[in-house]
Nucleic acid binder design. Structure first.
Lengths: 242, 242
DNA sequence: TCAGTTAGTGAGTGATCACTTACTTACTTT
DNA sequence: AAAGTAAGTAAGTGATCACTCACTAACTGA
């Protein structure tokens, strides 16, 4: 297991190095930035998220950041380099064992599954909502930039899937998660419910996410674990099972 | 109920008229189109879906459609007009009672809920997969075009929600759907599972949608109705209930 | 027959695009 | 204090953008 993680990290590092050389972006020293660099990144994220990468011009970014357009190109060789500077470090954080472990720490607690599910939903939803602009940017732009799509799939999604499926298998063996459905479908559905909630919250809360966040998270955990069926249909199911 | 539907249609018609005048697009005679017009629409959908609206130039469309660039503007006054010509009739079909009723026809059958859920999933997934490019285009561009977002929310989503919630309430009253969770959360979670599947299929099938389509749809219905919890946790739940 | 309409286009339009060049300013190093 | 270096920018660059104009060709109805 340790080896697996290390090889993932190496893959990720190799990939970032390759990309950063191709586009001439420095992805290492993301902590020692000028005031103006920070303003450029803020402005870029603002417009990329609102209008999309293609719908944003470097002059718009320069104006909002109150810098000359040439300053942008001084620091991030190209417009795409700027996008990658925003997106890749964010992906790196997610792919990192650190963040994945925060979910595992919840799963490994000795509590009823319902409480674990609710805690996981709360943890992920809060983290994603706090960075909703960036998450949306990554998801949308991965549709149009093949390298981003690859990274999201082969580094982030795969890492999450591998770590989660390990625990799901354990829970299956303990009879705490149903064994008649493949792990990937269980994970996908569990995550879909959170994704749907996030979209609803940000797109049409007054129709599809009317409750308080706490309540919604509790309902999501209820549905994910026990389904939407009422007592009458549950009886049918019990009969079918036996 | 009849009145409600009619008023929805009127709203939709009013809205389309307003928009088509604002952007000078003819959205009525979508069936009597020239050969070249069809080629333009095909090329536009192709690039809009692949590169996004902003990432597509009218010259690209003209080249693929094998027409002069000016021909595009002869028929669709502006680039945005072309987008709306692609998107609005498609939205209209979804908002139409006809398509909504195809789901209701399934619900109204006298079968176990599990079979109904599976049939609904199959019906919607197949229809959406057949038009995946267009669906993706609508969802993505609604992020960047406020009028599209409004239309999707206030005409399509609302219409679907109202019709579905009516049936859910009935099923709740009959004890076939659980009554302790609000309708909007039930509908949202049910639809989220399908959305998640569609995304997985088109984005990372080898990780998150490994099964045959038939199998996946059955698993989705199982999870939506009865949840992911295994027998051990179901016992906990039954105790909690009593 | 001929005026009116529609489909279609080649050759442009100014505006804006991402990006470069040549330069100044300010700070650091020796 | 001299030399080097990084930050920052005004003023461009050619290419491409969405869109227009003036025109031809083909068809339609009176």
């Amino acid at each position: 297991m340790m080896e697996k993680k290390e090889s993932n990290i190496t893959d990720w590092d190799k990939w970032t190095k390759l990309i950063s050389e191709e586009y001439g972006v420095n992805l290492d020293k993301t902590d020692q930035e000028t005031e103006k660099q920070k303003r450029i990144l803020e402005a870029a994220l603002h417009f990329f998220a609102e209008k999309g990468y293609s719908g944003t011009s470097t002059s718009m970014i320069a104006e909002r950041a109150q810098v000359a357009e040439a300053t942008i190109f001084k620091h991030y060789k190209s417009k795409k380099g700027l996008l990658l500077r925003l997106v890749i470090p964010a992906l790196g954080k997610v792919a990192t064992p650190y963040l994945i472990r925060s979910v595992l720490n919840i799963i490994d607690q000795d509590k009823p599954l319902y409480q674990l599910a609710q805690e996981i939903y709360a943890d992920r939803v809060h983290k994603i909502e706090a960075n909703w602009d960036k998450v949306r940017l990554i998801l949308v732009e991965s549709l149009f930039h093949p390298e981003l799509r690859e990274a999201l799939k082969n580094h982030v999604l795969k890492a999450i899937y591998e770590v989660m499926s390990e625990r799901i298998e354990e829970l299956k063996a303990a009879g705490r998660i149903r064994q008649d459905i493949p792990t990937h479908a269980l994970i996908r559905s569990f995550m879909s419910i959170a994704l749907g909630y996030l979209i609803a919250r940000n797109f049409a809360p007054e129709i599809m996410a009317q409750g308080k966040e706490e309540e919604e998270l509790a309902w999501m955990a209820e549905i994910a674990l026990y389904g939407v069926a009422g007592p009458a249909e549950k009886e049918l199911w019990r009969e079918k099972e036996e």
